[in-house]
Nucleic acid binder design. Structure first.
Length: 460
RNA sequence: GGCCCCAUCAUCUAAUGGUUAGGAUUCCAGAUUUUCAUUCUGGCCAUACGAGUUCGAAUCUCGUUGGGGUCACCA
């Protein structure tokens, strides 16, 4: 059984990079009929916040990811960590260190001055004497003193770390008794039965420490997949100032979950030339072993393209629901099919759709100056009047094609090109020279409103 | 700085050691569209550099350069 997990620290929202590793973990677990667990890494109580976990679940819900089992909070598991720390103490694989923070700091400064790597000097490693008066001890784990630790990584290959270069007897429990990150991660992953750890490659250099814990406790070491970071345009790790990093912001910006997930899965992973992946296809095809080794740059253009693709391919009924979040309610509008068909081809986001629809449904308050100059000539007035007259005499005006026929009639009768009527009419209807097909717009707003808008321009 | 990772068009990526180095996004041009957008067609654009191995290297090895990550009683 494959068990994966997503283990964020509670920052208050789900980060876009976090969503990617969560997605990959989710896909791999589901593909194998395994489990996908959610654990909140909140051993630093100073910002222990239940709302943060809820924010993550909310984001999961929006994109359609679902974790198995209950959410584990590390802050609730303190006794477990204490128990395992005690085990290590009892078996002599860990020990109490009474060095004060100040002493440690001083040691580091000396080492740095000597251009050595700052490193604990093992002074309490084999200490058997009487502890210094009134000092709280931290617990340090005995790390190997020599040799190397190899991380067998499913993405990066075998990564060898020289123990002397990177390790010391690191702290697994602070003076106040609370456990530290590298210890709890290993304990939890082992206890929760995690078989495949899929996480950002910023954790790669932590992994040897976690392996030390696994080994000290006799736990089996899981498979690791360290996926490359997502970078911004400067080639740096994505941060808040790079715009939207909160997953829920994408909902507000009018992106669909399908587009976002599709975008994220293609960052660092591919399947031949395929660009569009449904959840079903991702589930069938994704394998963490196929993840690229190099970081990828986050570029919005592709997201936009995917988003417009998904909008075009979303049924109107569904679009109608989605649009409500953006303030457009079409559910009882008798022309909603025509509206949606006219708009869905031309919007990159749901927000754009909403704007376009509102624009069309609202009588223009002003007429764009440049548009008037370009498209509203002397002869335009008479043409519009003729068209209005034709509309008044027409019967059965419902579909876009009905309006199109009237336009054709007028054009033929006056012996003019379509453009002669199109430009002024568009200005009348939309206030500017761009927009959906005129026949659609008229069918949507109806004859009365069409005539009113023409009138408004004529009296302008 | 130590350690680790990485290197194909601007971007995401493909390529059993043998291809005119492929696709997608962006951009440009043309067609379609009464407009804009969509759509379609076409175009521009890449193996970081230097050695080596090999009949043959984007692919293997070494080095250089460049970029990133990480070095806590944070996670």
């Amino acid at each position: 059984m494959v068990v994966t997990r997503f283990a964020p620290s509670p920052t208050g929202y789900l980060h876009i990079g976090g969503l990617r590793t969560a997605l990959l973990s989710y896909l791999w677990a589901r593909r194998n009929g395994g489990k996908f667990l959610l654990r909140i890494e909140d051993t630093d109580f100073s910002r222990n916040d239940e709302a943060a976990a809820l924010a993550i679940v909310e984001a999961f819900k929006w994109v359609g990811l679902e974790h198995d089992g209950t959410i584990e909070y590390q802050s609730n598991r303190l006794p477990i960590y204490q128990e395992y720390a005690q085990k290590l103490l009892d078996s002599g694989k860990a020990y109490k260190c009474y060095m004060s923070k100040e002493e440690l700091e001083a040691l580091r400064e000396e080492q740095t001055a000597r251009k050595e790597r700052p490193k604990y000097d093992n002074r309490y490693r084999d200490f058997t004497g009487t502890p210094p008066e009134g000092r709280e001890a931290v617990i340090r784990i005995k790390a190997p003193l020599e040799g190397s630790i190899t991380v067998h990584d499913g993405v990066k290959g075998d990564v060898v770390f020289n123990v002397a270069d990177i390790l010391d007897d690191f702290i697994i429990a602070r003076a106040d008794g609370t456990p530290t990150y590298n210890f709890v991660v290993a304990v939890d992953d082992a206890l929760m039965g995690v078989t495949d750890v899929i996480r950002g490659d910023d954790h790669l250099s932590n992994t040897p420490k976690q392996i030390v814990v696994y080994q000290a406790l006799g736990f089996p070491i899981p498979k690791f997949f360290h996926v490359p970071m997502i970078h911004n345009h400067e080639g740096k790790k994505l941060s808040k100032r790079d715009g939207a990093t909160d997953v829920m912001a994408y909902k507000t910006l009018g992106y669909t979950p399908e587009a976002l997930l599709n975008f994220l899965v293609r960052l660092g992973w591919s399947h031949g030339d395929q660009e569009i992946f449904s959840m079903k296809e991702m589930l069938e095809l994704f394998d963490p072993s196929d993840i690229n080794r190099s970081a990828s740059v986050y570029n919005v253009e592709k997201l936009d393209w995917l988003n417009s693709h998904y909008i075009k391919n979303t049924p109107n009924e569904k679009l109608c629901e989605l649009l409500e979040f953006h303030g457009v309610v079409l559910i009882s509008h008798d022309k909603r099919e025509i509206i949606l068909d006219a708009i869905k081809e031309r919007a990159k986001t749901l927000v754009e759709m909403a704007t376009l629809i509102t624009e069309m449904l609202t009588r223009p308050a002003v007429f764009d100056e440049a548009a008037l100059k370009k498209g509203y000539k002397e002869e335009s007035k008479a043409i519009l009047e003729a068209f209005a007259e034709a509309l008044k005499n027409a019967t059965e005006l419902h579909l876009p094609s009905d309006y199109h026929h009237v336009m054709e009639e007028v054009v033929t009768k006056l012996e003019i090109g379509f453009g002669k009527i199109g430009q002024p009419l568009r200005i009348a209807l939309m206030g500017k020279l761009s927009g959906p097909g005129l026949d659609s717009v008229m069918a949507i707003i109806g004859v009365e409103e069409t005539l009113a808008r023409i009138d408004a321009l004529l009296n302008h």
